[in-house]
C-alpha cells in the first residue's frame, strides 16, 4: 500500500487508486461482518440477538465504503508526500524479529534489543554495534528493574535466567 504513493494529491480530479483500495477494503470488511453474523444463532427469545449489531455496523461500513469511493474517484484525498518504505519495513522487521524471539522462547532482552537496533537503524543510525550495546544495556536494566525488583513477569530465555 505504501508503494503507490507518488504525489497524485497535487492534481485534483484524478482517481486516487489508494483511496479505491481503502473503499474496497471497507466493503470487504462489511461482507465479512455479515457472513460472520449469519453463522450466529439467536438463543434469546426476547429483545435483540447477537447478530443485530454486526449487521448494523456492516451497513454503516457499506455506506462509508461508498463515501470513500466517491472521495477517491473525485481525487479528494489529502495530498501525500513520498514515503521512505525501506525505513518502515526495517522497523516492521524489528517487530517481526521481536515476536519471533519471544515466540521461540528467546527471552525479553534479545527480543527488545533487536527491536531497538532495527528502529535506531531505520532512523538513520549506522553504528549497529554501538546501538546493540546501548539496546542491550537498556533492556537489561528494564528487565532487572521490572522483573526482579517489581516482580512483573517478563518472558525469560537463556540470557534472563542468568540474573
Amino acid at each position: 500500500m505504501t508503494s503507490d504513493s507518488g504525489s497524485q494529491g497535487s492534481a485534483p480530479r484524478r482517481i486516487d487508486s489508494a483511496g479505491v483500495v481503502i473503499a474496497l477494503a471497507l466493503a470487504a470488511l462489511a461482507a465479512v461482518l455479515v457472513w460472520d453474523a449469519s453463522q450466529l444463532q439467536s438463543n434469546n427469545p426476547y429483545g435483540m440477538g447477537p447478530h443485530v449489531m454486526p449487521v448494523v455496523i456492516a451497513v454503516g461500513l457499506g455506506i462509508l465504503a461508498i463515501g470513500n469511493l466517491v472521495e477517491a474517484l473525485r481525487g479528494n484525498l489529502p495530498a501525500r508526500e513520498s514515503a521512505d518504505t525501506k525505513a518502515v519495513w526495517l522497523i516492521l522487521g524489528g517487530l517481526a524479529l521481536l515476536i519471533a524471539i519471544i515466540g521461540l522462547g528467546g527471552g525479553f532482552i534479545p527480543a527488545t534489543t533487536a527491536l531497538f537496533v532495527a528502529t535506531a537503524t531505520a532512523f538513520g543510525r549506522r553504528a549497529i554495534l554501538a546501538d546493540l550495546a546501548i539496546g542491550f544495556v537498556m533492556t537489561t536494566l528494564i528487565y532487572v528493574a521490572f522483573s526482579r525488583l517489581l516482580t512483573l513477569s517478563l518472558p525469560a530465555g537463556p540470557l534472563e535466567r542468568l540474573f
Partner: peptide
C-alpha cells in the same frame, strides 16, 4: 531521534509483553 523512537518502541512493547506475552497479542 533514533534512540528516542527506539526507546519508545521498546517501552511500548514491554507493556504488552508484561501484560500478555503471546505471539497473537504482539502481532
Amino acid at each position: 531521534q533514533p534512540w528516542l523512537y527506539a526507546g519508545i518502541l521498546v517501552f511500548a512493547t514491554t507493556g504488552t509483553i508484561a501484560a500478555k506475552p503471546s505471539v497473537v497479542e504482539l502481532s
